[in-house]
């Protein structure tokens, strides 16, 4: 199954370019100190708000720092938030979904009503309320984004479990006296994992978008630490004089999120049996 999916992804040119771009950004993030031409924290008052040139290809910001270097360092923040928030959302959602779907009855009702309640809140309001009360920093942002993004996963997993738990292999496992824990994690979860992987891919992109919005509002990653949303926020202050501050970080966010979405879409097609006949 895994090999089949990989083969299908590699055959899909659009998905492949998304995957390559993700690796490219990952590389930039990991080796940022080697790739970046300048120190992203280095202030240079003689070089303030320089438009893009050969020396500073994306220009400089209001403190004379090199925007290109800051964007490269910003990749680190965005990917960290994206992956960790995704991890939290997926784990929380999967656990709730498994429990609700497997046990059913009152437990299911309570969990799913809780999902409804969480979905009723405008997500950004909820995130903002929590982040504003705590000292905003990158870890809080990751956790809060994760804890407000698990509901769709829970619904998805629950639906999978509901259809899986009546299948013969689960009934057989129950008949030989396997524990609920074993049935859930050994028999049901592995069969429900592929839709979860698709959701995970999309949620990395979603988390990166939310983080950039929070940093833009000044409630995410705090300056002087470079982040894409943070640079855009400065761009807004200098909107009439320095367009480059508003342009390049946005392109970075867009391409990164787009890559995850394209990959997610390709994964979704790859695991959908409707498309298998083509092979």
């Amino acid at each position: 199954m895994f090999k089949l999916i990989l083969k299908r992804i590699l055959k899909n040119k659009i998905a492949l370019s998304g995957l390559i771009f993700i690796f490219f950004i990952l590389f930039m993030a990991i080796f940022s100190s080697y790739v970046a031409p300048y120190d992203p924290y280095k202030i240079n008052v003689y070089n303030v708000l320089e438009p893009p040139s050969m020396k500073h290809i994306f220009g400089t910001d209001e403190l004379g720092r090199d925007v290109f270097s800051r964007i490269i360092y910003g990749a680190k923040v965005s990917l960290q938030v994206g992956f960790i928030a995704m991890g939290i959302a997926i784990i929380t959602g999967t656990i709730f979904g498994l429990i609700a779907g497997y046990y059913g009855g009152l437990i299911d009702t309570i969990i799913m009503r809780f999902v409804d309640v969480m979905l009723a809140f405008p997500t950004l309001f909820l995130i903002l309320a929590v982040v504003a009360f705590l000292e905003p920093n990158i870890y809080i942002v990751m956790i809060v984004i994760g804890l407000t993004g698990w509901m769709d996963v829970a619904r998805l997993v629950r639906a999978e479990v509901l259809s899986l738990k009546e299948r013969e292999f689960v009934l057989a496992a129950r008949a030989i006296g396997a524990s609920s824990f074993r049935i859930i994690f050994k028999h049901i979860l592995p069969n429900a994992i592929y839709p979860v992987i698709v959701a995970a891919t999309f949620s990395v992109g979603g988390a990166i978008l939310i983080e950039s919005g929070l940093s833009f509002l000044g409630l995410g990653v705090q300056p002087p630490e470079p982040s894409w949303g943070g640079i855009l926020s400065v761009g807004k202050d200098y909107i009439t004089v320095a367009w480059w501050l508003s342009l390049f970080p946005g392109i970075a966010i867009f391409l990164t999120v787009l890559s995850f979405n394209l990959l997610g879409e390709a994964l979704r097609d790859a695991i959908d049996p409707k498309h298998w006949a083509e092979d």
């Binding site: 992109g205 978008l209 950039s212 919005g213 833009f216 949303g229 855009l232 761009g235 807004k236 909107i239 508003s246 342009l247 970080p249 946005g250 966010i253 867009f254 999120v257 787009l258 979405n261 394209l262 879409e265």
Partner: peptide
Amino acid sequence: VFTGFSVPTFWIALL
């Protein structure tokens, strides 16, 4: 559609 899903809307607003 993919652009709409992937682009930070506040960035579009800035542009």
